[in-house]
């Protein structure tokens, strides 16, 4: 009986948490599409956020994508050559690397760097009573603090994952000529033939959804901090676990959409 009760409790908790996130996402979404949200203060925060999330890490991000991407493409092309699957390299490059791998790696990098930072930042602000300060001056916390962060997540993930794809396709030119002895013309032709417009649109949409949730969830859990300092690590770890669950869920959903 106790086990059943525990299972029931866990399921109810899970459903409540999921419903809470969806309701919160809806609230944020409404604000995103409301013109009044975009005040000068909000725009300043948005620019700061994009600067911290994307521009500041751009050199490191590019280096990581060149190193990681080249390594991956090199290994993949060698494997394809060894298995005699050279004719599929275009499909592997477009279908796997550009539409699946790039958004995924970008999301992981941004979650690790900015997701955790935003989760902590919001929790610390809550503990410091800075949220109450904003409310005392009739500043809407959602409009001023949360919406710019979520929009930043969407913009950053879409743009950075595109950059990642471009870098990967660039190293593809190098490796295709080294491993397959392929010219740039032949390479771009193969890419064009295997590029599927709907796949690219799905990849872009997936990046948008990723960007929305990997910031929204840390923000939501950050807001759950109490006025005690000890609540910060608790909400941060809970937030990060939930972000990774969300990443996995979105990946699975996008796969299902692709199947149909």
């Amino acid at each position: 009986m106790v086990i059943l009760e525990n299972i029931g409790c866990a399921v109810i908790k899970l459903i409540n948490s999921f419903a809470d996130i969806i309701y919160f996402a809806w609230k944020i979404l409404i604000r995103i599409f409301n013109r009044n949200t975009y005040t000068s203060a909000m725009r300043t925060v948005l620019i700061d956020q994009i600067y911290f999330t994307s521009v500041q890490i751009l050199p490191i991000f590019l280096m990581v994508s060149i190193a990681f991407g080249s390594l991956l493409i090199g290994v993949l092309f060698l494997q394809l050559k060894q298995l005699g699957l050279t004719q599929y390299f275009g499909h592997v490059l477009m279908g796997l690397i550009v539409t699946e791998f790039s958004p995924f790696i970008t999301v992981l990098l941004i979650t690790l760097r900015s997701g955790s930072a935003i989760n902590t930042e919001i929790a610390v602000m809550k503990v410091n009573k800075e949220m109450s300060a904003l409310e005392a001056f009739r500043i809407d916390v959602i409009n001023y603090l949360l919406v710019p962060r979520v929009i930043n997540g969407v913009i950053s993930i879409v743009l950075l994952s595109t950059l990642f794809s471009v870098v990967l396709l660039g190293s593809g030119i190098l490796f295709s000529s080294l491993i397959f002895g392929m010219s740039i013309d032949a390479y771009s032709n193969v890419l064009l033939n295997s590029a599927n417009f709907s796949d690219i649109i799905i990849a872009l949409l997936k990046s948008i959804v990723f960007g929305f949730f990997i910031i929204l969830i840390p923000v939501r859990f950050g807001l759950q901090a109490s006025h005690e300092l000890t609540s910060i690590p608790i909400v941060v770890s809970r937030g990060m676990v939930n972000v990774f669950a969300a990443i996995l869920t979105i990946e699975v959903l996008s796969l299902i959409i692709k199947l149909f």
Binding site: S40, A41, E121, M125, K129, A133, L134, F137
Partner: peptide, 24 residues
């Protein structure tokens, strides 16, 4: 009990009010 926003400079803390309320 109404502290300053710790991740913003003094300038931005003061400017915030006019930026938000008057969209300046």
């Amino acid at each position: 009990d109404i502290p300053l926003i710790s991740n913003q400079s003094v300038l931005m803390n003061i400017a915030l009010i006019k930026q938000y309320h008057e969209n300046m």
